[in-house]
Computed example of a mutant assay.
Amino acid sequence: MSEGYSIRKTVLGDRDALTNLCMRSKQSNGYDDAFMAQCADELRVRDEWITRDAFWLAETGEGKPVGCIRLSVEEDGMTGELATCFVDPDWQGRRVGKVLFDVLYAEARTRGLVRIGLDADPFAEPFYARMGFQITGRSPSGSIPGRTLARMELVLDTETD
């Protein structure tokens, strides 16, 4: 699909490799081991994410995961949540995230979603802003007591082509 990698839906056998990818990507932002230990459970990929949500994996021809993105849909059926988005540190800046977002946007349009929300790590805020998300407030961290994250939202164009 793209230079050196392809995108596919995740399967249950990807769980541990996805968790490893999420941890490596997060730690590449300079977080120390103590911080990462606090985040470990929140970053651990769960089977139900793979079976319930729209979850994609970017991988090399050799099967090495280089990125992932997960969209969950809220009960209202109109709002999505970008619940997981990570790119391997060695693959950042190589358009993996952009290509994963293209897949996510196509899925959101197919499902008729009108908005996608996310809680952004401070290091990821600029990337999400480039993808069209805007800060709408703050959300408590799911891992670190007292820490808040930017709450961001993208209102999707509901016009059909």
Rank of each mutant, 00 (worst) to 15 (best):
S2H: 11
I7L: 12
V11I: 11
L12S: 07
G13P: 03
D14W: 00
T19H: 10
T19D: 13
T19Q: 08
C22D: 05
R24Y: 07
R24E: 13
S25V: 02
Q27C: 04
N29G: 11
G30R: 03
Y31W: 05
D32I: 09
D33H: 14
F35I: 06
Q38H: 11
C39V: 00
A40V: 00
D41T: 13
E42S: 11
R44G: 06
V45S: 04
V45H: 00
R46M: 12
E48I: 15
T51Q: 04
A54S: 12
E59Y: 00
E62D: 15
V66W: 04
C68P: 04
C68F: 00
R70N: 15
L71D: 04
E75D: 14
G77Q: 07
G77W: 11
T84G: 02
T84H: 04
V87I: 06
D88W: 03
P89H: 09
D90A: 14
W91P: 10
W91D: 12
Q92F: 01
R94I: 11
R94T: 13
F101L: 15
D102T: 15
D102A: 15
A106I: 07
A108H: 08
G112A: 03
L113I: 09
V114M: 07
G117Q: 09
L118C: 12
L118S: 06
D121F: 02
F123K: 09
F123H: 12
E125R: 09
P126C: 00
Y128F: 15
M131W: 10
I135S: 15
R138K: 14
S139M: 04
S139Y: 06
P140I: 03
S141Q: 12
S143R: 05
I144P: 13
P145T: 11
T148D: 15
A150D: 14
R151D: 12
M152H: 08
L154F: 13
V155Y: 13
L156Y: 07
D157S: 10
T158F: 02
E159Y: 11
E159M: 06
